[in-house]
Design a binder for these strands. Structure first.
Length: 430
RNA sequence: GGAGGGAUGGCCGAGCGGUCGAAGGCGGCGGUCUUGAAAACCGCUGUGGGGGCAACUCCACCCUGGGUUCGAAUCCCAGUCCCUCCGCCA
């Protein structure tokens, strides 16, 4: 959520920044400002009424204490409480509407973010690794995987439908190895605390991260009378780990890593990436998440992105880092780096990680504060998230980059301890 | 699924209609004492919002939401969560 005071006091600036990311809501912004003014007008009246009520109560109590009758002190009718109830209801309505509008406004881009209207305006920041030259035509994973018996799309369709896949044999093992490799790396070498969170979360958690109320169509909701959704990313449970808490500033940043499956409806992506494992309703991801003080969040964002890059480097997968332009960023982000891995079978770089700073956007929605020195006034923390990495996409990158002329796949060195020492993936026999 | 019990400040725990934002203890902070520390003693010590340069002041908050009342932490209703017992179950 945007800072309400910012909307009130710097409306023009907010409008410009929202426009930069393609959001034009002048009416909503004006409405928020008007509601804020209304709220500030109601409060003094309400407080005065409550003060008067309190004073009367004290008088009656005193009279009773003195053994006198308080009958003549009692107010006529209910005018008193009715007035307060009226004002309370009015205030409540104003605050609710104000919050409802605020929850639908995206975050504002950071000044270091390039302006632009879409993907074409994203900027490459850096590149690592040299795409391998093949002495044969490399296959895409949707051919390679099924040929090796690792990946089965047809059978997944029978039990679940389109955009699902089954991993088999060394494919399933590779998947598991990647998860363990990533978790071990981040916990042992990058200082993250491992978390195994719930895979179902309630609506409040999703409001906290910015997935609700605006993007309900992207989510899978649990059937029946449950206020629960399948997690679209581990970012949701991780961000809510410290919901409604005041953290000790001396212990910041807090760094967490979690593996979870992720579930997305992919509404609005019909016809896009229909082949292979790129865009599935269910995928797996190892997610990094940090709670930081405001002054440190951009440094930490760079570091967190580095931690994701190191996964690719250890696996020997060429990639590039992109900074998303204002028009291509997600709802909650002020700045986002995407990492794109080289996929030789498709001759292109594809997104494999997205690392964002949301500043206080999620913290404000989820009530996550901190005290700088452990004492004093609490302020909203900043939160960062990043995939490190998307497991399915890493799996296909390993397959496509490691494939050999005879159809087998070389397992990257770093992964072998997690693959029970297996060095080469050969066609599955059983 | 059935039957009970509970939710109060950082923690423990009293309060069960009238200045209660809330006793007491622990913890934390400051002081006295001490060469230093401990112990002992004294004082301070919740959060959010509004107003004032400030000393300060006002309002709200005792799980959440309704209700009763001049007045609710205390009474009533609904919900959430936790605990115990029985049943079922990976």
């Amino acid at each position: 959520m945007l800072d309400p005071a910012q909307v009130r006091d710097h409306l023009d600036e907010v409008e410009v920044k929202l426009a930069e990311r393609g959001t034009h809501l002048p009416a909503e912004l004006a409405a928020i400002k008007a509601l804020d003014a209304k709220r500030r007008a109601i409060i003094p009246d309400l407080e005065e009424a409550r003060r008067a009520r309190k004073a009367l109560g004290a008088k009656i109590a005193e009279a009773k204490k003195a053994g006198e009758s308080a009958d003549d002190l009692l107010p006529q009718g209910h005018g008193f409480s009715d007035r307060i109830k009226h004002q309370e209801a009015a205030l409540d309505a104003v605050e609710q509407e104000r919050r409802r509008l605020l929850l639908r406004l995206p975050n504002l881009p950071h000044e270091s973010v390039p302006r632009g209207t879409g993907e074409k305006d994203n900027q490459e920041v850096s590149r690592w690794g040299e795409p391998r030259t093949f002495e044969f035509t490399p296959k895409a994973h949707w051919d390679l995987g099924p040929a090796l018996g690792l990946l089965d799309f047809e059978r997944a369709t029978k039990m679940s439908g389109a955009r699902f896949a089954v991993l088999l044999g060394a494919g399933a093992r590779l998947n598991r190895a990647l998860i363990n490799f990533m978790l071990s790396l981040h916990t042992q070498e990058h200082g993250y605390t491992e978390v195994a969170p719930p895979f179902l979360v309630n609506d409040q958690a999703l409001i906290g991260t910015g997935n609700l109320p605006k993007f309900e169509a992207d989510l899978f909701k649990v059937a029946g009378d449950w206020n629960l959704y399948l997690v679209p990313t581990a970012e949701v449970p991780l961000a809510n780990l410290h919901r409604e808490e005041i953290l000790d500033g001396r212990r910041l940043p807090l760094s967490y890593v979690a593996y979870t499956p992720c579930f997305r409806s992919e509404a609005g992506s019909y016809g896009k990436d229909v082949r292979g494992l790129i865009r599935q309703h269910q995928f797996e991801k190892v997610e990094l998440f940090k709670f930081t003080a405001p002054g440190q969040s951009y440094d930490e964002h760079e570091q967190l992105t580095r931690h994701a890059e190191i996964v690719l480097e250890k696996l020997g997968l060429p990639y590039r880092r992109i900074v998303l332009c204002t028009g291509d960023m997600g709802f909650a982000a002020t700045k986002t780096y995407d990492l794109e891995v080289w996929l030789p079978g498709q001759g292109t770089y594809r997104e494999i990680s997205s690392c964002s700073n949301t500043e206080a956007f999620q913290a404000r929605r989820a009530g996550i504060k901190f005290r700088p020195d452990g004492t004093g006034k609490a302020a909203f923390a900043h939160t960062l998230n990043g995939s490190a990495l998307a497991v399915g996409r890493t799996l296909i990158a390993v397959l496509e980059n490691g494939q050999q002329k005879d159809g087998t796949v070389v397992v990257p060195d770093a992964l072998r301890p997690f693959m029970d020492g297996q060095e080469v993936i050969e066609p599955r026999r059983s």
